[in-house]
Design a protein around this nucleic acid. Structure first.
Lengths: 335, 335
DNA sequence: TTGTACGCGTTATCAA
DNA sequence: TTGATAACGCGTACAA
């Protein structure tokens, strides 16, 4: 079913059909009604592919996430979907599985599919930003979210990672902990670096030295948290941490597991805090103190920002910070 | 950057460029190398829109899920994404937010975008199947997953809901429970109906009558589970259930909450089981016995089935059952 | 109000 | 091995 068929069937021109179907002016009401009637009867479906080709606009945005199934990103995607739906856009979803070359693959195809813009949260293994820069140079708007790449001309939507990390570290300091360790994320990813910075600055602001033996790289997952914590527990008793700031909740879960296997008590022997407020955080044997990261809002804001840029209503290169909230539970020992 | 530009720049025809770029035969090796070199230098990106228009093939499938953020569907989507990526297809994601008209909207746009096939899990409020039937009639393959619509010519991938429900009900029966209640899903959705059937059949097979006062409609969410259970707890003590089969884990969580508010003990006073194996199930104060639903596998299988049908390698109308597993924890009282 | 010509970027077909 | 032509379905610009 094409517009042309409707046209010949009605003995009118394709143009009139097009105008009628799109609710454009300059078409007689009677003609319009006849067109709409025939269209409905014949089950006409407009062909967005053809339309996109001539208009050079797909009303589609491409999304690249590093991971689909861990509670935070689904929330973000829901926020994106809501914003995108409200603006009558659509969403091609790809995931990089934390793999750089797969991410590049995704970006290339998304470009081939002529999406109007890109929403990206970078993979852990990303080191080179040339793909992003090239896309931007060619006029394809990009908005980064959560794991962002600032200062290359793209807008970024995230929480203030450094500040969050400093805030939760200071929460521990104010409650008397002095040997505070950090389970750090991959240093290649923005949030890994910034959360480490926040942790260090909080210590320094409070007159403590940063001890490098108290920083263990865990990555973002439970397994990494487990083994990084294992390393810290091997320190001589007097040098062991009395509290731990994990780069995110899953890493904290892994750490909590091995702490318990060592028959140490949380928070009495070791306090621990996370970041992200995973669904599981409040259900742990000792509920986890953490920072709530509003995934839905991050997604929605990122999508709205991107669409505004696509439509020329907003300039690229903005840095948008979404507000977070400290959620105090039992694992930090102050309740 | 278009193929035509490469052609004029090299003084050859567009067709030769096309052949070279797509690795087709009948093009001189030297010519091919020159084309590829220029393409790279100029940053040429093939235009899938134009290609799709002439080929009548987008290599894209549309996915409609009722809900994005609740642990099961993200798993499914990850499975879909993996299968789709492996077959060099892409994925347009939409969500219906359990709303029928929004689902129809999504299907219509997906048709307009000329996706090669549809992967659907129906919204709760769906009553009318004509949109699906019409799409199938027009030659657009559909595969339903999880919440399926059998017997309309589309393949369905799901667990055997009736059997699962019967199995977990019999697990309770074998352990001596006799007044078993059911928190049921919406009767309009396949899994709601079938799980109710399974529950009833299990009772009947074991010589028990189904008591309608022990069936309370909870829907799929925590809140519904809470209020449905509230109703059951208002029964006179002797008529109260000694065990509960919830239609899914979230409904069970809601029920557990009010059971505890009534200072009743799980499983001593009331045993309870769920279905779906939510991430939170094992972390509840009393870990929940449930049936593990392999979301990743459901998604992957559904996508593979759809792609096979798109490519004519498989016939529609198949009924694929994915294996499940009973996960026994403390809430059923047999540990 | 309506219609005509042309173009969007690509591929299939057939001829050279 | 190469190229010319037509076609995919629609919208813009202009003319009638």
């Amino acid at each position: 079913m094409t517009g042309k068929e409707i046209a010949t069937r009605l003995g009118i021109s394709m143009m009139t059909v097009s105008r009628a179907l799109n609710g454009r002016p300059h078409v007689d009401k009677k003609t319009r009604d006849r067109v709409l009637a025939v269209a409905r009867k014949l089950g006409y479906t407009p062909n967005h592919i053809a339309r996109s080709l001539v208009l050079k606009k797909t009303n589609t945005i491409g999304v690249v996430v590093p991971e689909i199934s861990h509670s935070f990103f689904p929330e973000v995607i829901r926020g994106i979907e809501d914003a995108v739906y409200a603006a009558a856009y659509h969403l091609i979803l790809t995931h990089s599985a934390e793999d750089y070359s797969r991410e590049q693959d995704a970006i290339n195809t998304l470009e081939s599919k002529r999406v109007d813009g890109l929403l990206i949260s970078t993979a852990q293994t990303v080191t080179d930003h040339s793909t992003y820069i090239e896309a931007i140079r060619l006029g394809l708007p990009i908005v980064f979210f959560d794991r962002v790449v600032p200062n290359i001309g793209a807008s970024c939507v995230s929480i203030d990672d450094e500040d969050c990390s400093a805030q939760i570290t200071e929460h521990l300091l104010h409650h008397g902990y002095r040997q505070i360790a950090h389970l750090s994320g991959p240093p290649t990813v923005s949030i890994g670096k910034e959360r480490l910075n926040g942790y260090q600055k909080a210590l320094e602001r409070n007159g403590l030295k940063v001890r490098s033996d108290l920083v263990a790289q865990s990555g973002f997952h439970e397994k990494g948290g487990y083994s990084a914590m294992e390393k810290l527990l091997r320190l001589p008793p007097r040098e062991r941490p009395d509290a731990v700031v994990a780069v995110n909740d899953p890493a904290a879960f892994g750490a909590m597991k091995i702490i318990q296997e060592h028959r140490l008590r949380i928070p009495m022997d070791i306090a621990i805090v996370g970041m992200s407020d995973d669904v599981r955080a409040e259900l742990m044997p000792t509920p986890l103190t953490t920072i709530h990261q509003p995934g839905y809002e991050i997604g929605k804001t990122a999508a709205q920002t991107l669409i505004a840029e696509i439509e020329g209503k907003s300039e690229p290169g903005r840095r948008i910070i979404v507000r977070t909230e400290l959620v105090v539970r039992k694992s930090c020992g102050c309740l």
